[in-house]
Design a protein around this nucleic acid. Structure first.
Lengths: 154, 154
DNA sequence: CCTATATAGTTAACCAGGTTGTCTATCGTG
DNA sequence: CACGATAGACAACCTGGTTAACTATATAGG
């Protein structure tokens, strides 16, 4: 069956989905029940220095309006906040709140734990080979995902 | 960097997305410009013998209403059709049209070609190891994806 | 100095694909 | 034959996208 080209994409998706599901189960247990898969990516994309709606949209590969809506949501649930830029009053700097940082830190730790589980199951060597192979077959910068909603545009 | 747990899910998603993008570029070139990523999965889930909305929903892990909407779309663009079941007039059997079959056949061939490219790049042995590892870390039946829209519900 | 152009952000209308809840028609069984 | 279960359709709503239009501010040029 490994010669069936249909399986490869399916397994990649399934593996991703499995990891994300496990992450969110654990995140919910640790006090972040209303976080959704993409929020982690978005917070990561905002970065420690903050960003603006236009820039975030550019990073994520969506329109500034879509980025703005996402920021609205993140703000509403307390993971990000908008502040004005004193040097350009058109701009509003989006920053991650302490609660957002907490979610991000926990995500990182949970992902590490999940990776460790994979390593225990497959062996560190095989897992490193897998990661290296995936790195080889995918574009360089993993942040330019165009992810949020690209599967919605399915 | 391979010890950073964040990278694994990202690369899995990116790899999936890359394959799907390449598939659709090629599919568009071969006369199926308006097919969308999930249609292939859905057609696959419908299968050669047809199915019903309820059953399709069960297979894909979505509600029968969502399955019904998807069937509407597939019908509108000519990839599927509804026929009534003579033995149970409540049921409507959804069948793949010849055009739908054409898309499915081409998808299979394109996926095989993409897999061959991976094999050429990584070596057949490494690729088989990768597939086998992914199989080991994901649930058994790849069809029970819960895929359509799960990332929309992101 | 003052006008023209570019940029940041917001709002509105729409779309796709999901959800829940409700309703109708048909099947099948006690 | 009546009643419960099942198939499908419809409506209202949610989320996360899109395009288009508008406001406010910044900046460069004549």
């Amino acid at each position: 069956m490994s010669s069936n080209g249909f399986e490869l994409p399916l397994r990649l998706l399934l593996a991703f989905r499995t990891l994300i599901d496990e992450l969110h189960t654990e995140l919910a247990r640790q006090g972040h029940p209303d976080i959704r898969p993409m929020y982690g990516f978005v917070l990561q994309a905002i970065g420690p220095d903050g960003t603006t709606a236009v820039e975030l949209g550019r990073t994520l590969g969506v329109t500034k309006q879509a980025a703005g809506k996402t920021i609205d949501t993140l703000e509403r649930i307390g993971y990000a906040e908008r502040t004005t830029d004193p040097r350009d009053s058109r701009r509003k700097i989006v920053r991650i709140t302490p609660r957002g940082m907490d979610a991000l830190d926990r995500s990182a730790r949970i992902f590490d734990a999940l990776r460790a589980r994979w390593a225990a199951e497959l062996g560190e060597e095989r897992l490193q080979a897998l990661e290296s192979d995936l790195r080889r077959m995918t574009p360089g910068n993993p942040w330019r995902l165009d992810t949020p909603g690209w599967f919605g545009t399915l």
